[in-house]
Design a protein around this nucleic acid. Structure first.
Lengths: 242, 242
DNA sequence: TCAAGTTGTCTAGTATCATAGACAACTTGG
DNA sequence: CCAAGTTGTCTATGATACTAGACAACTTGA
């Protein structure tokens, strides 16, 4: 019958099974090290063929989420990064607090001009000169997010070069004499990763991402930098405290 | 050659195209009422066959996102709900502030016992008696989120009946003498909608959702209710203010 | 009116998805 | 060692996804 799924959503059945298992892991129904149910049992619960389950497990195995052992079973190996969103948000501190090693890498730095949105966030005029920094952040060796950051080219000349050297936004701002900064409003939404980000995050196409738009201000509430970040949803969990 | 996509992600090509166009609409690259590029042009930018583009557009049209006009073009019709996350978060106020009409509907109310997580959030013992309320919230006629809410059965006897009548968590709490309440920590992550929620949210399978876990406290910081909500990511944008 | 550009509808071929069944290779516990 | 239960591999078949090309139906602007 090959039902695909009720009303063909464009997502392969094996992918739905893989997502279901992954969700089970994320929810804690399967803990790290646990043995998953047998392929036949999974096939029955999802009402699909065992081969379809095998494909799902193969996909999860390739991403390092599970590991199959012939004759024995399939076992879980995963974890999520807890990411608190406070007015003082520093990637390296967050990752370090989880006992993992933070890394940053510059993808590209280029000159840009302010669009309407960026101009509004930074309190500049449309078309004002900017530095645009495209960077990726990792915990241990796992990519967590890619960020596009905009800074005023007048206030922060050669920001790209400085970031390439320091690999840290905090250190970059220190270099220009900013001692402390705070986060203003943070806008969060979700989407599906595009091809470019998928490659950068080492994420298969079609995976969900958390999209965060935020602007950092100095202590006088003057806007410093505005960012557009895309997080691999399966690798991170945001914590909002109020 | 039917490349599918680089490394077969289990997501159909037409779906990727549809997502790309939808993202373009969400980003504002295409505004409401705008005419999309021609099918041939879209096919070229995504490097797929025109038929694949047509399928993507058909899917978007069926969801009411775009509308095709023969001989003329394909036009956008969409919008997102701004959803601020404050310590004082009331669905009806948020929706009303956007000029849309809030609705609530009870799906199911049942007795339940506290798992470890829920017990921790509500300050109860594991296995303590609870009322579990499964509800859906809409703006105008569009489903926005489904929530699973847990309350202590001792503090709030017959909470399910009260909610069915009032259709509002705020009014339910008022009924038990709670004048005001505040939100504690809010945990946000993203995922893919499952079959049950997909049906409730009138969302195709495989669409991204924002998952929110939160606990509301009274003014003495005593926990009242804890919730697990799933938002249709394409219909809402969270705003965090700090 | 007409040409150019648009969406709508056919036919057809190839690759992938999902199903089904059988059996091999291996692990575990008794 | 052996039986039961597990993952791994093979063959085969039908349905769906994607591509390709052609042309119809319709809208728009010159």
């Amino acid at each position: 019958m090959s039902m695909q799924d009720t009303a063909s959503s464009g997502v392969a059945l094996w992918r739905l099974v893989a997502d279901g298992i992954e969700r089970g892991i994320a929810d804690g129904r399967f803990a790290t090290g646990d043995k998953l149910p047998g392929e036949m049992e999974i096939a029955e619960t999802y009402r699909v063929n065992r081969h379809t389950v095998r494909r799902a497990l193969a996909a999860l195995a390739e991403r390092g989420i599970v590991r199959a052992e012939r004759g024995s079973g399939t076992y879980v190996e995963a974890q999520k990064l807890a990411y608190p969103l406070r007015s003082r948000t520093r990637f390296s501190e967050i990752v370090g607090a989880e006992g993992r090693e933070p890394h940053g890498r510059l993808i590209e730095a280029s000159d840009d001009v302010a669009t309407r949105e960026v101009a509004r966030e930074l309190g500049l005029k449309v078309g004002a000169p900017l530095v645009r920094i495209e960077a990726i952040r990792l915990a241990d060796r796992t990519p967590i997010c890619v960020s596009t950051t905009w800074l005023s080219a007048e206030l922060f000349p050669n920001a790209g070069v400085v970031f390439a050297a320091t690999r840290s936004m905090t250190k970059l701002l220190e270099h220009y004499g900013v001692r402390d900064y705070r986060r203003g409003a943070t806008r969060i939404t979700a989407g599906i990763v595009d091809a470019t980000d998928a490659a950068r995050l080492d994420l298969p196409l079609g995976r969900p991402i958390l999209v965060v738009d935020a602007t950092d201000h100095d202590l006088d509430d003057k806007p410093l930098v505005t960012k557009h970040s895309r997080f691999a949803a399966e690798r991170v969990e945001f914590l909002v405290e109020s």
